[in-house]
Amino acid sequence: MATFGAAANANTNPNKSYEVTPSPADSISSLSFSPRADILVATSWDNQVRCWEISRSGTSLASAPKASISHDQPVLCSAWKDDGSTVFSGGCDKQAKMWPVLSGGQPVTVAMHDAPIVDMAWIPGMNLLVTGSWDKTLKYWDTRQQAPVHTQQLPDKCYSLSVKHPLLVVGTADRNLIVFNLQNPQTEFKRIVSPLKYQTRCVTAFPDQQGFLVGSIEGRVGVHHLDDSQQNKNFTFKCHRDGNEIYSVNALNFHPVHGTFATAGSDGAFNFWDKDSKQRLKAMSRCSQPIPCSSFNHDGSIYAYASCYDWNKGAENHNPATAKSSIFLHMPQESEVKAKPRVASGRK
């Protein structure tokens, strides 16, 4: 069983990343950068949604807390409107709130489910918010209306979803991966059993909408292409493992410029990968606590990640005295995130 001992606890920031302050009082559940500016939003188990403005000068970073709002219960997910004006958040109070963060307006409830909302995304091509819940539904919302535009039944609880219009990928319990073409959102485009043997933790759509990544609790990632003629490009690989210790892959983020991606895991590490050359570009040092969530900023020059207890060992292993929740910012060097040219073998 994986443990984080006292010795490891001394090394809370081994990558010498910039720490965003003040830290949330409890575990961090999601991080989302604005698509237009270096504004970072974090949701956490202390029922709060917090916003910071990040500024960069050469190789140094600074953060300034801007504002925060509250939910009635722990907040699990967040998303930005594509114009960077508005933040959406959802969680255990079964509702999604819309917060006009740039104008300093008050949050309003724009979505309701019958169970916690665990993931969400704004769909720019449709001007709709999509929310996924443990109530086994996806709901699409026009934020000017009280009722959902469409409710889509899922085969099981939603765990993760990702949109790159017109592609929507949903990971549910029982290893289902459901693909929707948003030009016809009321019909499943494809249903796939995960190529990974264990529970899905996260999914993310390829930037070119041609497929998706899926991560699981077994420290493995699957690379899946949708086109039947591209199936020979599908593969899975191991990551976030240490000898016999196996850790969950908690977050998958594509770099917005280079098309490479980052994985973050319960081992406290984040790594950068190139799926096309099947290479790990950079392995970062392990933090003393798990990394439950992460996000690139709009140009990929900043990678935000949280380090905190992720509840994968239950409440009995949670020690508030040692389990500080931190948000760190890493500035990737080009060599860490830019794909390396493939070397031709010379063989015919």
Rank of each mutant, 00 (worst) to 15 (best):
A2D: 13
N15E: 04
K16T: 13
S17Y: 07
V20E: 08
P24M: 09
A25T: 07
S29D: 03
L31E: 06
W52N: 06
E53P: 02
G58N: 11
A62V: 00
K66V: 12
A67C: 10
D72L: 09
A79D: 10
A79Q: 03
K81F: 11
D83Q: 07
V87M: 02
G90A: 08
K94V: 09
V108I: 14
I117H: 02
A121V: 07
G125V: 01
M126D: 09
M126G: 01
K136R: 15
T137I: 03
Y140D: 07
T143M: 11
Q152D: 02
L154V: 00
V169F: 05
G171F: 08
L177F: 08
N181Y: 02
N181R: 03
N184I: 09
T187V: 13
E188C: 00
K190M: 11
K190P: 01
R191V: 10
L196E: 00
R201K: 15
C202T: 14
T204I: 13
T204P: 05
Q210L: 05
I217N: 07
L226W: 01
S229C: 12
Q231M: 12
F237D: 02
K238W: 06
N244G: 05
E245N: 12
I246M: 06
N250K: 12
N250Q: 10
N253R: 10
F254C: 00
A262E: 08
T263I: 03
A264R: 00
D267L: 06
D267E: 12
A269P: 01
D274W: 10
R280V: 11
L281G: 02
L281F: 00
Q289T: 09
I291K: 02
P292Y: 00
P292M: 05
F296V: 12
H298Y: 15
S301Q: 10
I302D: 11
W311V: 00
G314Q: 02
E316Y: 09
E316I: 15
N317E: 14
N317A: 02
N317F: 09
H318I: 06
L329C: 08
H330R: 01
M331C: 07
P341I: 03
A344H: 12
